[in-house]
């Protein structure tokens, strides 16, 4: 068990190093001089020389990378070209909005996905089966920027249940969270259904049925419980999809999150910010998955071996 964990931890470290290396190299992959990419086309020769010196771009690449990591570990991700603000500060300001949105979306998609998945698994009616198997997939098939606008039009404009923009506490969170949760809830529903169907055919459930335990109780007590574990995994894996999806959702709903920051930075070619957002999102995603894996292996020791 301990060696399993240390093995996973080593892998985690390797992945983190790789992630930082890839992010670091991004700026060097831009065609042309990286300083030009950093400063934009208004730069004068003296600006270019100064930035090159300040950033140590005149040093060999490996040395630059070590400096980059050393500074990043201390929380220094450079300075935004567009606003002159430290990148880490910009990220800190925007991070909460994205986290609230993501958590709300995880909550919504898990609840709705479980409900639909269970319904799909236990339903005996062909009509119900058709709808619960097709409907979530419709959610998965709608472009988010379009479903978002449809939600705004219906609930913000026609029904006026929620404000279209502005901060009205949780009420401003509902629509973007629903838009973001739609595709994920489909994935959760599908997973729930598959696992429950499988579990219902396993020995212990069949035994319970044979013993005369009412069908509904079997579903709730045994099958649903067994189905929950893989659902946790799916949700943690979907965390990355949600972080990515937040980029589009935040643009549609004018929410000041990390995704919006990334798009602004890309349109302004503000590379230090792009690098920072990409690095932070990737690290958060890797850590969340690692944590999920840990919890998972503690819950169910069989998993750790596979």
């Amino acid at each position: 068990m301990a060696s399993q964990l240390s093995g996973r931890f080593l892998a985690l470290v390797i992945v983190l190093v790789g992630v930082s290396l890839a992010t670091f190299l991004m700026i060097h992959a831009v065609p042309g001089d990286p300083v030009f990419a950093l400063l934009g086309d208004q730069a004068t020769a003296s600006d270019i020389a100064r930035v090159r010196r300040d950033l140590g771009l005149d040093r060999p690449l490996p040395e630059q990378y070590v400096r980059y990591v050393a500074r990043a570990v201390q929380g220094d991700l450079g300075t935004s070209i567009r606003t002159g603000q430290p990148v880490i500060q910009a990220i800190k300001e925007r991070f909460p909005a994205t986290i609230y949105l993501t958590i709300a979306a995880i909550f919504l998609s898990t609840i709705s996905g479980l409900a639909v998945g269970v319904l799909a698994a236990v339903s005996k009616s062909r009509v119900v089966e058709f709808f619960v198997s097709v409907f979530p997939l419709v959610g998965l098939s709608l472009p988010t920027f379009w479903s978002g606008l449809l939600l705004i039009t219906l609930f913000g404009l026609v029904l006026k249940w929620v404000p279209v923009v502005g901060d009205a506490g949780w009420r401003s969170l509902v629509l973007p969270a629903v838009a973001l949760a739609l595709p994920t809830s489909a994935v959760v529903a599908r997973m729930t259904r598959t696992t429950m169907l499988a579990t219902m055919n396993e020995e212990f459930v069949r035994t319970a049925r044979a013993k005369g335990v009412p069908g509904r109780l079997v579903v709730y007590k045994h099958a649903l419980k067994a189905a929950l574990i893989p659902v946790v995994t799916v949700v943690s894996l979907q965390f990355g999809a949600l972080l990515g999806g937040a980029i589009v959702v935040e643009s549609v709903f004018a929410r000041p999150g990390l995704g919006r920051l990334a798009v602004e930075a890309i349109l302004a070619r503000d590379f230090p910010v792009i690098q920072g957002v990409v690095l932070v999102s990737a690290v958060v995603f890797v850590l969340v998955n690692f944590a999920a894996e840990l919890v998972y292996s503690l819950l169910d020791p069989r998993i750790a071996k596979s």
Partner: peptide
């Protein structure tokens, strides 16, 4: 596998827009 995990670490839309940015 490590290489693939590194790739997987980037949320896909974010990876895509970073590539388009470059």
């Amino acid at each position: 596998v490590r290489l693939l995990e590194i790739d997987l670490a980037f949320p896909s839309i974010l990876l895509a827009i970073a590539i388009v940015a470059v």
